[in-house]
Amino acid sequence: MKAASKLQRMCESGNFVVTGEIGPPKSCNGEIVRHHAKMLKGWCESFNLTDNQTAIVRLSSIAAGKILLEEGLEPNIQIVCRDRNRIAAQSDILGASALGMKNVLCLSGDHQKFGNHPTAKNVFDVDSIQLIQILDGMRKGYFANGEQMKDEPPQLFIGCAANPFADPFEFRVTRLEKKADAGADFCQTQCILDMERFERWMELVRARGLHKRIKILGGITPIKSVKAAKYMKKFVAGMMVSDDLIERLEKAEDVKAEGLQIAIEQIERLKKMEGIAGVHIMAIAWEEKVPEICQRAGLAPRPEV
């Protein structure tokens, strides 16, 4: 059963969708989540809650989601395959659903090598595509083992990620297709810092008609500094930053203002791009700028659906 979440209603309404992201803290201080929730309330349809992002132990995404619900925001629970087997994943989905959470984003998860517990054992019982399949089965009333649920199935709106900047390039489209086949309803892309490559990817997506089967939200990350841009270009696997973008930042008198301006222009461009259903704004450690970005990009106020 699909979720009838606000995010789903927005996706189906044909309006340009806006999602945001909140990273839970490295502590049990729920007030930090609450603080961000209050700051961002009303600016996006739904907010991703990252699941131990970059393999660093953080307040759980489902617990953070509960805080969002209390504050009247709609959570989008991220769930990674790194830390859970199919038993734990399904259990968490049932739990999240019982708490009123409807949007779930399935990810492989960053390898623990990058995090603060590099000596941990990983799980990867299932991969992200298989997890989507499992969740799709659950909302139809079946567990991963094929057993039918005796009670109401969870209502889920299932998301996935897509990275047009990883390789092999053509296969990235096939992978999105597999995610749609598995049952994903929407997809949020890796942050776009090379618009040309993104457009080429979208061409391939449209050629296969995938945009009609899955809602695609383009990833937007405002860049704060030239150093950050260069670092992402050089050191973050699966990330591309165009030289034009770096040059613009380098020439700017006020780099931060220019970073915001670029993000806003990217949103404007995505609004016009065929097959793009919306944007996913990841203002990492810069959440306070989300309202300004939304306002200046003409994304406010959010329509009621």
């Binding site: 790194r82 492989s108 991969d127 990620a161 990275n163 990883a166 390789d167 092999p168 890796q190 696997a237």
Partner: peptide
Amino acid sequence: CSKSIFNGPCGGSQNGKCEVDP
């Protein structure tokens, strides 16, 4: 595969190399 996934490559694959170790 560093993540033993069955429907790869994941988003960390670039230039034929694994994100975990270049």
